[in-house]
Design a protein around this nucleic acid. Structure first.
Lengths: 235, 235
DNA sequence: GCGATGCTTCGCCCCCGGCCGAAGCGTTGG
DNA sequence: CCAACGCTTCGGCCGGGGGCGAAGCATCGC
């Protein structure tokens, strides 16, 4: 039997319905307390506690103690990327729990993936940044410095990001589109700004992101799709 | 509890050590018989048979009956991509079964991922193709037609690929590099040619791909890294 | 036809792991 | 100090599922 990374361990962690529900809830990006997650997963607090420590030990969840609360969150973009990939495969194999409804269509357009934007809007943004040379895939997926104005206009202080560690630009495989979108510290910063600017809003308790008409217009102006067609945006 | 694709089902499928070993073996790209997989997983034929039907029903394995043999293989690139992503997370979390040795270093350089090339060479190739405009990420990750000569020189008949369905160009998240490499029908075609041309050879029973000195030179000529530096190839 | 081979189905055992009740520990607030 | 709250640990129950032996079906070779 050939050796390799212990896939089964991680997969088994995700493979329990209660734990999967917990991880799913955390894909919303908010850190949640143990009891909130217990409710979310539909199990008792004791049971949830067990699951949470497993997920924590397994390196999937980060833990922050605060007073008598314990806040859990996904440990990083890689975990979110993996869950999105699983979503994609599960959806593709027809293993849907519910029939695709209007809410799913909205989710496909724009949603939160842990701490960054996902969905059609996110894929368009990623492609636009690559096409304009702002992100270079040939040097380890990093900011090139070209067209940094794009971020400045948005109000994302790239210089500040750069001041810390090198800006992390990660690819995350989109669940619905099966294409890459932008994760990493830059992805998180942009998501934050989209909400601050009021271009988009989140629906509480879900991963749904809704763009305002004005926000959508501005977004498509900032990250135009295709060669350089200013007009047609997301069909 | 929020609804969504049934992640847990798929993850649970991968989460069993025997099944994970089976999937891992199939990442080599060769279709294997039920008994071969049983040996690979270290279980009896009956047990393996059960696992295999589960994986088949779960939509992860394709089955081809041939005489009294049953050949199993991964069902597609998405599954391979998922397994690579899991590999990455498991390796990153330090959940290695064995200490990283020289063989792992070689695997990181070049290996087979189901039916296409993965590792440093593969990532370089993907970036090179994107940088040269041969692959366009802004239109659904497809062949642009630009620079098709690259493929012709290699002996990959793009026209023939095109004649069938639209050429499938898929991204696959690389286990070791955490970057995209090329999957899909084009990725498979190129892998095939690399072996036919003798630029690279596979080590039987493993995912290892070894480039000959001459092959490496030609490969780096065909898919140069960086802006247009012909010389320095893979450090 | 007959045996050998490859694979599956059936039946059973048994253990792992999810689940909750009860109790314990730490924090907060009064 | 005590009570309320959040969370964890412990112990026991129990079901699901992996494991193999034995038997049943196909297919191949002769």
């Amino acid at each position: 039997m050939a050796e390799g990374p212990d896939i089964a361990r991680i997969a088994a962690l995700i493979g329990d319905p209660a734990r999967a529900a917990i991880l799913n809830a955390l894909m919303g990006g908010h850190a949640l307390t143990a009891s909130e997650l217990a409710r979310e997963a539909g199990v008792s607090p004791q049971t949830a506690s067990g699951h949470l420590s497993q997920l924590h030990d397994g390196g999937l969840l980060a833990l922050r103690k605060q007073g008598r609360h314990r806040y859990f969150s996904l440990v990083g973009d890689e975990v979110a990327a993996l869950l999105e990939a699983l979503d994609g495969l599960a959806a593709g194999s027809g293993h849907l729990r519910t029939r695709p409804g209007p809410r799913d269509a909205a989710l496909r357009k724009a949603r939160v993936c842990y701490n960054h934007l996902a969905g059609e809007f996110a894929v368009q943004m990623f492609d636009s940044l690559v096409a304009r040379g702002a992100i270079d895939l040939s040097a380890g997926a990093a900011l090139t410095g070209v067209n940094d104005g794009v971020f400045g206009d948005l109000g994302v202080d790239v210089a500040a990001l750069r001041a810390g560690r090198p800006v992390v630009v990660r690819e995350c495989l989109d669940w619905s589109m099966r294409r890459s979108h932008l994760a990493g510290s830059l992805g998180r910063a942009i998501m934050t700004r989209l909400l601050e600017l009021g271009w988009a809003r989140r629906t509480h308790g879900t991963r749904l992101v809704t763009f305002t008409p004005e926000g959508e217009r501005r977004f498509c102006q900032a990250f135009p799709a295709g060669p350089i067609t200013e007009s047609a945006c997301l069909r």
